[in-house]
Nucleic acid binder design. Structure first.
Lengths: 167, 167
DNA sequence: TATTGTTATACTCTATAACTATA
DNA sequence: TATAGTTATAGAGTATAACAATA
């Protein structure tokens, strides 16, 4: 009896971005105390994990992979470098800022990885491994689909849509 | 050839929180220009949608449903109230701050709903309706599972875990 | 000229604690 | 005493534009 059931958009609970947000919030809550305890922010931890997983990376790649804006990354680099966890690396292209984990950074990552895995395993146990795998696959596919989309709902040229969005 | 494949945690790409974040980022990107164009922040739009969907709500409920911290909500209320989009409502319990959409707020919501649905439909078309439904169901279930979990990996009393997290 | 990244700037949100007022 | 919310405060990230350096 919400009084006006005429135009409900899609039911707040069934909105995809909101469902993604809430699911993320609920799972992140499990990891955050662990990350906090090591004096890292969530974003800093993402950067460290990406580097541990892929080796040295440049700023642009990290920005995309960690979903962090370049200006934020600059600050995060400074903070992690000041703690001796990462260091700048030589790059063929001198424009690129490539960073790598130091030994200390790798050690911190490895130290944190165990507890992180345990938390993950707890969630997977409760949720079910097959569902977890299915969910991950769907998330990756959704991301690819959404990234491949032009701008609005259709139009594979992606020009008129951005204009429409601007006003 | 990342040089050290010994301890990979889980492969950055297969981390659930990161997959959720990236999927959300990719989909949000479709909606953001639309929300921007109406002078709302994403969080403000979440509040408006929740109110449009459920009728008047108190601060605590909105905080949980929109994943917004109470202090942020206070500020958002002020901003939306200043624009005449919401108003405070009487509550039996005088401690509660219940807000409702005004006519103007409802009108704005309805005006935005069309384009929002179109964007949504575009994503659903590209992704597939069954997958979308499956994904939503998994997300809701994951959230419920994660929320029901104690603190760390197990222990259904949720005490020792929070202590462990503190140090 | 285009690209990569940093700076500058302004704003929003996060997060915690302390406080007020109900209940 | 416990709960709901606001205020205070500090800090981090978002976002955009402007700029520097390199390609």
């Amino acid at each position: 009896m919400t009084e006006g059931s005429e135009r409900k958009l899609r039911g707040y609970e069934k909105s995809l971005p909101i469902a993604l947000l809430r699911a993320r919030e609920a799972t992140m809550r499990r990891f955050k105390p662990h990350v906090d305890a090591h004096g890292l922010t969530i974003q800093q931890w993402r950067v460290i994990r990406a580097l541990a997983d892929s080796g040295p990376l440049d700023s642009k790649t990290l920005a995309a992979r960690c979903v962090i804006m370049p200006p934020s990354l600059t600050r995060i680099f400074r903070a992690l470098e000041a703690r001796g966890l990462i260091r700048a690396e030589e790059a063929e292209d001198a424009r690129r800022h490539v960073v790598a984990l130091t030994g200390e950074g790798r050690a911190l990552h490895d130290r944190m990885a165990g507890a992180s895995e345990a938390i993950y395993a707890g969630i997977e146990d409760a949720f079910g491994a097959e569902k977890m795998a299915a969910l991950l696959a769907l998330l990756v596919e959704l991301r690819e689909v959404a990234e491949a989309m032009p701008e609005e709902g259709r139009a594979p040229d992606g020009k008129s849509a951005s204009e429409a969005a601007r006003r």
